[in-house]
């Protein structure tokens, strides 16, 4: 029997999600707009503050916007495509995880594929609009290396957020109470990471590098992007951030083992 690839299975999942969505068009558009409006509010905040102050720690308005748009894009991609992890309390709570375990596919693949939250693309839209303004307005000469830099920031950023979602799911294997504090590392980073983390001081830089390597997909490559440094280390810092996914994967395995030994 030839094994059908995970990619094909994922495509089929996606098509099911799309068709489910079509059943609730009005509510989909409403939620999409809601997401967009939330992201637009975040943009307005930056606009008002930078309009008043001009710069913050040497970053111009356009440079902050590049940071804002890249972190928003990374977050919305992670949230759209890895929403299954985000709603893991429900997956555990309603026994759906048992169902996943009796199917011959990787567990985390199934959890991720089980839900695609396309309403979250509302934030992506705000990010795209912001890029459309900030990229030309920043005065950066977008040579291939700078384009690569921006792509790495977004893609690796999204993967780091997925890693945090995995940690969130790991905690769900043990308790479903008080999970809101994880918002600090997801929504909190999305909102406050709209500004390069170095404006918040050394301590925050340390936490956001060594607890979760957010700075490696944010400040460091941003410095390369806006020409504060030529170091290739900064350019490829986002790849280094992917090391974070290893402990996440180990924790996930630990969680699954715990689940299988308690059955709940």
């Amino acid at each position: 029997m030839k094994k059908i690839s995970n990619l094909t299975v994922y495509r089929k999942f996606l098509s099911i999600h799309l068709r489910s969505l079509m059943q609730y068009k009005a509510s989909f558009i409403m939620t999409l707009l809601g997401q967009f409006s939330g992201a637009f509010s975040a943009f307005l905040t930056i606009y008002f503050l930078l309009r008043r102050f001009g710069t913050v720690e040497g970053y111009t308005y356009q440079e902050v916007l590049l940071c804002f748009a890249s972190i928003y894009m990374a977050f919305s991609l992670a949230e759209t495509f890895a929403r299954g992890l985000d709603r893991f309390p429900a997956v555990i709570g309603n026994g759906e995880f048992d169902r996943i375990l009796v199917r011959p596919r990787n567990e985390i693949f199934q959890v991720i594929a089980s839900k695609t939250e396309l309403t979250r693309l509302g934030r992506l839209l705000q990010a795209i609009v912001t890029f459309c303004y900030a990229i030309p307005a920043s005065g950066i000469d977008f040579t291939p290396d700078k384009i690569l830099c921006l792509v790495l920031m977004v893609v690796c950023g999204a993967l780091v957020f997925v890693g945090v979602f995995v940690i969130f799911a790991f905690i769900c294997f043990f308790t479903l109470e008080g999970l809101e504090f994880m918002n600090i590392l997801t929504d909190g980073v999305r909102e406050h990471g709209s500004y390069p983390f170095d404006i918040y001081g050394k301590e925050i830089m340390t936490v956001m590098t060594f607890v979760v390597p957010y700075t490696l997909v944010q400040v460091y490559p941003l410095h390369y992007l806006i020409g504060r440094t030529d170091s290739l280390l900064n350019l490829f810092a986002p790849l280094l951030a992917l090391v974070f996914l290893i402990p996440c994967a180990l924790l996930w395995k630990l969680g699954v083992r715990h689940y299988k030994s308690t059955g709940s």
Binding site: T55, E57, G178, H192, Y195, I199, Y200
Partner: peptide
């Protein structure tokens, strides 16, 4: 408790942000 932690973190980051503007 989780809400308190989140709200505290938010406030802390905001004060750091406004301090950065103040320095500028």
């Amino acid at each position: 408790l989780a809400g308190i932690a989140t709200q505290f973190f938010w406030g802390f980051m905001e004060t750091l942000l406004y301090n950065a503007f103040w320095r500028g």
